[in-house]
Design a protein around this nucleic acid. Structure first.
Length: 786
DNA sequence: GCACCTCGAGTTCC
DNA sequence: CTCGAGGTGC
């Protein structure tokens, strides 16, 4: 065989590549080696030397590509054509029964439902993209919508074919798990030990570490494996009818698939499989953290669809989390950004669920009471959802002899000494010190610098801590005034404080590169998009999404910072609590000053714009009047009132109201009129009406003129569901709004059109039920275009 | 008024 | 990841 004669190097190289790939597949996928390692190495060496002499002969699936490529600077990001979503979890028989019941109900099934079952690998989800059968790209799951390009690293995994066997479709995205076998993990750690390097804590971390290498030559030295279990984009081929057929097809294409997969029926089938795998688990060559159930027929999967981010047709049945015993050495409290006082148990280090745990949150006062955790207690610890350590319960028999006192919430903040207060119906207690409290100040600065906020790289906890302690930074604006000297001074004091004088400093040399880099990073973070600046300010109840709403609707910081509650409240997803929180924040003189200081330091949000055109209808007097929060003045009452005043003073309803002497002339029920009277007796309230009127005028003046013709879709409501083939949700929404239509979240009788993409879920079913018109992407484009 | 969903906040470890 | 709370639709 290997002495087959080939006329040209090209022919020889092609033959070698094919031959080597055949052996790799036999060895790594079929687990049936076909030639001795030495023979393989000889052929491999020959191919390498041919390719060295004729680089153009290196095929895209050449096994020599698997040795790794020169290091990358950074991973590029990849947008998934079909999102990689997560699964809902089940932990006990009841969860599984409920799952099966919901599936049967969703499908109107009269018989037992057929499920495909498989092991749930404890590794990392990866999307492999094959074009015309050739491996072209691999991406991590990331947030499900965008991941990192790890093509070079994945190419080194021998079990992953670089070219699929037989007839492959033009585009096939294979979803699966990258993991490290227990044996390979043990061998890796033995080697690390020999080399005196740090050992990996578990196979999953070792696999994750290998995949995150920018230098794929290092990845090539770590033995990783892969199993395929799902599908992303597919074009030019028919999707098999069932999940089990898909995996059979994968096996034919040369992809590794789980050997423990089965097809079962009904909940008893599921539970039986769970038990079998549980028994087989210790003997499996890889770690698994449960099993996965999916309705076998893709048609059923489509019918069941998704709830928010997880499919209704699949469930991960997790094995019970590993538990361990340890002792509580102390219960301390932490002070969060909002002043939240959180008790934390300091634990004697214990190895559980693959990592060593030393801390576990106790959440709040009630939780400590409920579990009655005391210092010195022996407790059962586990990693909830296999991530966050959790104190399950106390082993009362092991409580020390003189019973330790029950833990009590401190009445003063341990950091600043301010009173700790707990609102009547809230679970959290808070330090009342506000920014006077250095813990809250530090957390506020930390939040400000965070990646999803201002994204100041290199400003970690330790530096923030020291900058605040050294009084170099009191508020976020101070960051922009820091000088090289300040940073060096901070570092010197910090080293003293922590008693760690680095050798270089002792030698009289002061490294400054890090400080220069940090100053650059701070200076570079002056022009975030408006929503990120808003998020960074740390206003209570304003997270990423609410910040985006504010930026989208009001467009400019100077409008947002003076917007009254009523205006905020008419915005989508902003109700009374959130609106008040925002208005309160900006009503605080200190916050306004801090914001001015930021602007003075050169911080300027980019992309400020005019308020959204659709704000016009939100600013209708009736809506505003109802949003003010006048007691008893509900929307219909507000309408009644506004319509009558409008007739007297067209266009100036709010202003007119502010000057009206009496309110019992509008046919309002007596108690409503009385409440209104009462409210109007307060001059400040009348003033706020005037202010609201003025701001409304200002906003209206800034609104972009809506084209006279208005969109063809004015008054139509759209609902988007599923993944559209070429447009993102945002793009589709923008197009619809540009045409004057509205996009809403749920289907009702009022919905004009449902735009359904791939994997459309319950909304599509609902639309069919209600007889709402359904469009695909092409239909939408036709409608908007025509 | 209730049920459902989404968002915010806090947390752990590598 | 999970909990709690806020918002919205029915």
């Amino acid at each position: 065989m290997s002495n087959t004669q080939h006329a040209t190097p090209a022919e020889r190289a092609a033959w070698l590549a094919a031959e080597l790939n055949r052996h790799l597949h036999a060895y790594h996928v079929l687990d049936a080696p076909t030639i001795p390692d030495a023979e393989y190495d000889k052929l491999f060496g020959e191919l390498q030397s041919i390719e060295a002499a004729h680089p153009e002969l290196q095929a895209p699936d050449s096994p020599t590509l698997r040795v790794g490529a020169p290091p990358l600077d950074d991973f590029a990001s990849v947008t998934h054509a079909v999102p990689m979503l997560s699964l809902n979890n089940g932990f006990n028989d009841e969860d599984i029964e409920n799952f099966d019941r919901r599936v049967r109900e969703g499908l109107d099934a009269v018989q037992l439902v057929e499920y495909a079952t498989e092991a749930k690998f404890d590794g990392l989800a990866i999307n492999l993209r094959y074009e015309d059968g050739v491996f072209v790209q691999a991406a991590t799951r990331g947030d499900g919508y965008t991941g990192e390009d790890v093509t070079a690293n994945i190419r080194t995994i021998k079990g992953i074919p670089l070219r699929l066997i037989g007839d492959a479709p033009p585009v096939l995205e294979v979803r699966g798990e990258v993991l490290m076998f227990k044996a390979d993990f043990a061998a890796l750690n033995a080697r690390q030990r020999e080399l005196g390097q740090k050992e990996f804590v578990n196979p999953r971390n070792a696999a994750a570490g290998a995949l995150r290498q920018l230098d794929s030559r290092i990845t090539a030295q770590r033995k990783l494996s892969f199993y395929a279990y799902g599908i992303g984009e597919l074009s030019g081929a028919e999707l098999p009818a069932t999940h089990s057929a898909l995996l059979d097809w994968y096996a034919e294409l040369g992809l590794p698939v789980c050997a423990e997969r089965e097809v079962v029926r009904g909940k008893d089938g599921l539970l039986g499989y769970y038990e079998r795998i549980g028994k087989a688990r210790p003997a499996l060559p890889y770690e698994i953290d449960g099993v996965v159930y999916k309705t076998n027929r893709f048609e059923d999967q489509r019918a069941l669809g998704f709830v928010s981010r997880a499919p209704r047709f699949a469930l991960a049945h997790k094995f019970p989390a590993e538990e361990a015993l340890t002792t509580v050495q102390a219960i301390e409290v932490q002070v969060g950004r909002t002043g939240a006082i959180t008790p934390v148990a300091r634990l004697a280090p214990v190895f559980v669920g693959g990592v060593t745990v030393t801390n576990a949150t106790l959440h709040n006062e009630d939780e400590v009471r409920r579990k009655d955790v005391r210092v010195g207690d022996t407790v059962i610890v586990r990693r909830a959802g296999d991530v966050i350590p959790e104190v399950l319960s106390v082993v009362l028999e092991k409580r020390p002899a003189p019973e330790p006192l029950m833990w009590a919430l401190p009445s003063e903040c341990p950091v600043c000494g301010s009173h700790v207060v707990r609102e009547a119906d809230e679970a959290v207690a808070r330090c009342s010190g506000g920014l006077f409290c250095s813990a809250q100040r530090k957390e506020a600065i930390r939040h400000f610098c965070g990646r999803r906020m201002m994204d100041i790289e290199g400003l970690g906890d330790r530096y923030i801590d020291n900058l605040v302690e050294c009084k170099l930074v009191a508020g976020v604006a101070d960051l922009y005034r820091l000088t090289l000297d300040d940073l060096l001074k901070m570092k010197r004091l910090a080293d003293e404080r922590e008693g760690t004088t680095p050798e270089t400093a002792a030698q009289g040399k002061v490294p400054t590169k890090w400080a220069e880099n940090l100053l650059d990073a701070i200076a570079a973070a002056k022009n975030p998009p408006l929503e990120r600046l808003l998020f960074a300010l740390g206003i209570r109840h304003v997270g990423e999404s609410t910040a985006k709403t504010l930026a989208d609707w009001l467009g400019k910081l100077d409008l947002i910072r003076k917007a009254p509650v009523a205006v905020l409240r008419v915005l989508p997803d902003i109700g009374g609590t959130v609106a008040e929180s925002i208005a309160d924040f900006f009503a605080e003189e200190r916050n306004q000053q801090a914001l001015d200081a930021l602007l003075a330091a050169g911080v300027a949000p980019k992309g400020e714009r005019a308020p959204k055109a659709a704000l016009r209808e939100k600013l209708e007097t009736v809506a505003l009047l109802a949003a003010i929060g006048i007691p008893k003045l509900t929307e219909p009452r507000a309408r009644q009132l506004a319509e009558q005043v409008e007739q007297v003073k067209p266009g100036a309803t709010l202003l007119a109201l502010a000057h009206l002497p009496v309110f019992n002339v509008f046919g309002l029920p007596a108690n409503v009129a009385e409440a209104l009277d009462e409210w109007m007796r307060e001059p400040a309230n009348r003033d706020s009406l005037v202010a609201l009127h003025e701001l409304r005028e200002e906003l209206l003046a800034q609104l972009p003129e809506v084209a006279e013709a208005e969109g063809a879709m004015t008054g139509k409501t759209f609902v988007l569901t599923g993944t559209l083939p070429t447009m993102s949700r945002d793009q589709a929404q923008a197009m619809i709004e540009a045409a004057g239509g509205k996009v809403s979240g749920s289907v009702s009788k009022k919905t004009s059109y449902v735009v359904a993409g791939a994997e459309a879920g319950s909304k599509l079913a609902k639309a069919e039920e209600l007889g709402v018109a359904i469009l695909d992407e092409a239909g939408l484009l036709a409608l908007l275009g025509g």
